[in-house]
Amino acid sequence: MSDWTPPSTVNLVDLGFMDARSKLIDLAAFLDRVQRANQTDDFRVQALKNAIALLSLDQPTRAKEVLLSFSDPSTEPIEKATMQGAIGAYRG
């Protein structure tokens, strides 16, 4: 299982730039939209802003750091599940 053949070199910027650009503009527009609607106090918007700051990190672990920033950091099980779904950001 360990005989890994790396992929041949391709231009990943060619493949992914337009998609990344589009998602970034969508994110910018989302922040504009919630600000115009005076909804920036929502903890999820703050969680998003905290995560955006992590994009300027130097190491290629940004996706991991963003996911960690949204995560419940506690370690003990909760007493009882009071809902079935998840929100996407830890309220604290």
Partner: peptide, 12 residues
């Protein structure tokens, strides 16, 4: 688990 619960759940 999903989303914000995944990290803790995976560790548990």
């Amino acid at each position: 688990p999903h989303l914000e619960d995944k990290l803790k759940g995976t560790r548990l």
